[in-house]
Design a binder for these strands. Structure first.
Lengths: 160, 160
DNA sequence: CCGTATCCTGATAGATACTG
DNA sequence: CAGTATCTATCAGGATACGG
């Protein structure tokens, strides 16, 4: 990977950090908790109590992370009502949020490869065929892009 | 995206967070500065003084970020000597570090799309053909994966 | 019981000063 | 100039308490 206008580019991204998409995106996903809440969204979690059960954090931190993700329009609040209870909101990925799938998946796949000696705790497979799903960098334009609804997560560890 | 063993899986990742590859990878890339230093590595930066010029951070924070990346074996120190100066080290991506390209690129591409109204400050293209390079999630196994050395970064903004 | 505001504590960044 | 130690300020996280 090399630069077209090497020195100038380097200086510009230094002095005008608002031009760096990576920095701006990280500002929205500022904390580790926010990333893990986002992960949970892809795992299908949508309700406050379920996030609390599944993400190792406190209620105030969860509240802050959800507010952050909502103000960035990565999740949106959707009203629901369980029988016999008052109306509540659940948190659903927006289209923009769904587009963060490569970020979440590539973090997971890298960790699987380098931090678990190739025996991944979770794996991502095509929901119909069971084929493994990968994240790749390519210039090919004629490949079939998987949406998160096509993907199934398999647990590769045994339960006690 | 749905769960095979939904409830059990959720509980396990909650109570045994060491099974979550995302959390473990984020621990290595803990801070925003670490991400931006990693970004600079992909842009070709390798020397302390150049990181200082190009990443908006302080020398102590840079030192900490490089140490963190080195201990995670994402970068490695390589000796060099400029004429008339003492020997120094530069910081180069390892193979594991190169494999973080999809993480960095997908963060950048998402920001380009959603935070810059589709007019990206930087774009990633094939170094030979100039075709845009993308990050995608797919089950196709027969596509040509781009390595970071095949990719060129183009600046789409004018210089003062 | 769901969710948030408040307060307090611990981790992390940057300013400064220093060594090789 | 490369890199680190120290110190302080800032910021994210959790315990608690509180409103719907």
């Amino acid at each position: 990977m090399s630069m077209t206008v090497e020195n100038q580019l380097a200086d510009r991204t230094r002095w005008r950090p608002e031009l760096c998409s990576i920095a701006k995106t990280l500002d929205l996903l500022s904390t580790k908790t926010t990333f893990l809440v986002l992960r949970e969204c892809f795992y299908g979690t949508s309700r406050f109590e379920d996030f609390i059960d599944r993400v190792p954090t406190s209620a105030p931190a969860l509240s802050r992370a959800l507010k952050q993700l909502a103000s960035a329009h990565i999740v949106t609040r959707v009203p629901y009502r369980d029988p016999g209870t008052r109306a509540r909101d659940e948190y659903r990925l927006t289209a923009a949020g769904e587009d963060l799938l490569p970020v979440v998946m590539s973090l997971s796949l890298w960790g699987n490869k380098y931090l678990h000696n190739g025996s991944p705790p979770l794996s991502f497979v095509d929901a119909r065929t069971g084929q493994p799903v990968r994240v790749c960098v390519t210039k090919d334009s004629d490949l079939s892009e998987a949406r998160s609804s096509d993907i199934e997560i398999r647990a590769n560890f045994t339960l006690d």
